[in-house]
């Protein structure tokens, strides 16, 4: 089942096409990343499917059921930044959310414990650090035991420790099997947790796929180094080598054809009397994929 499906979803701000005919499918049970540089339309798209922003055109459907406001009560979402009444305590704030979502007040202490804010539940929101505010937002999103959790830049502006805490929290929630949608301009943030991703650029959806696919690209890249000068010549002669590039440190970046791998390369070089002292298979990371996608579309 699709958790969320959008059809030609579009938002114009005057001449700015903040979101342009976005067709998105988010399957159940995945951790889905929406990637894109700042201003690429991530928040605008999420704002539309969460009812905060009126679409210029297009449609969207939650859980294959429609887009009624009552459906949002089963969704936990933070958009852009944590929003609460500054002079109210965590408990007073969550009571409002609980009533809106028609959730029992018992849940409040449970989610506060989950994010480690139970001890500070009677402090005013404005006295919280940014990391605590972000955690309270996650607590609020978890109130209704949501079918899907939507987090927009959840580590924005946090210090390294705060980032680590939020990331740990997201990992724990992901392990419980919830669908999570994570919007971010930081790849690093989503790489370790997400299973699917899409890329937005200037309001357009330019890629959607699985993270594991990016590791199995047609070519394999290997780093080789050897003290022997004949290495370059030998590499040039090998049929399995499709691309060769010398690095500054004297080593070589070698792109192999799809049947080959580092093991085969090593064997072939050994046959030519060359021993290597450095041989590393380079998997294409999400980051490189991301940059490649952006470059290809430019």
């Amino acid at each position: 089942m699709m958790v969320l499906e959008t059809k030609q979803l579009t938002k114009h701000y005057g001449k700015i096409k903040a979101a342009n005919e976005i067709n998105l499918q988010i399957p159940e049970g995945c951790v889905f990343a929406i990637l894109g540089p700042n201003g690429s339309g991530k928040s605008t798209t999420l704002g539309m499917v969460l009812g905060a922003t009126q679409p210029t055109s297009g449609e969207f459907t939650w859980f294959g059921q429609g887009n009624d406001h009552k459906i949002r009560r089963q969704i936990g979402a933070i958009l852009e930044r944590p929003i609460f009444y500054p002079s109210f305590t965590a408990t007073q704030n969550l009571k409002i959310t609980a009533r809106i979502k028609e959730v029992d007040n018992n849940r409040i202490n449970e989610v506060l414990k989950l994010v480690g804010l139970y001890e500070r539940r009677d402090s005013n929101f404005k006295t919280y650090s940014l990391g605590m505010k972000q955690r309270l937002a996650i607590a609020s999103a978890m109130l209704c035991d949501p079918k899907v959790l939507i987090l927009d830049e959840p580590t924005n502006g946090l210090d390294p420790q705060g980032i680590a805490e939020i990331r740990q929290l997201i990992l724990e929630i992901a392990e419980s099997g919830k669908t999570i949608v994570l919007a971010s301009h930081l790849l690093d943030e989503v790489q370790k947790v997400c299973s699917d991703f899409c890329v937005l650029r200037s309001g357009r959806l330019i890629y959607q796929g699985k993270v594991e696919d990016t590791g199995e690209t047609a070519s394999v890249e290997v780093e080789v180094k050897s003290p022997q000068k004949e290495l370059e010549l030998a590499l040039n002669e090998l049929a399995m080598v499709t691309e060769l590039r010398q690095e500054f440190d004297g080593g070589f970046k070698v792109v192999l054809n799809e049947d080959a791998n580092a093991h085969a390369l090593n064997a072939a070089l050994f046959d030519k009397g060359i021993t290597v002292d450095h041989l590393v298979t380079h998997r294409q990371t999400l980051e490189e994929k991301f940059l490649e996608i952006l470059k290809n579309e430019a």
Binding site: G51, A52, H69, R72, I83, F84, K101, S140
Partner: peptide
């Protein structure tokens, strides 16, 4: 000004409500 109206709607209130 605090954007709580927006959060209320995100949390599952309709604009009518």
């Amino acid at each position: 000004s605090l954007q709580t109206a927006r959060q209320n709607v995100i949390d599952g209130m309709s604009r009518g409500e």
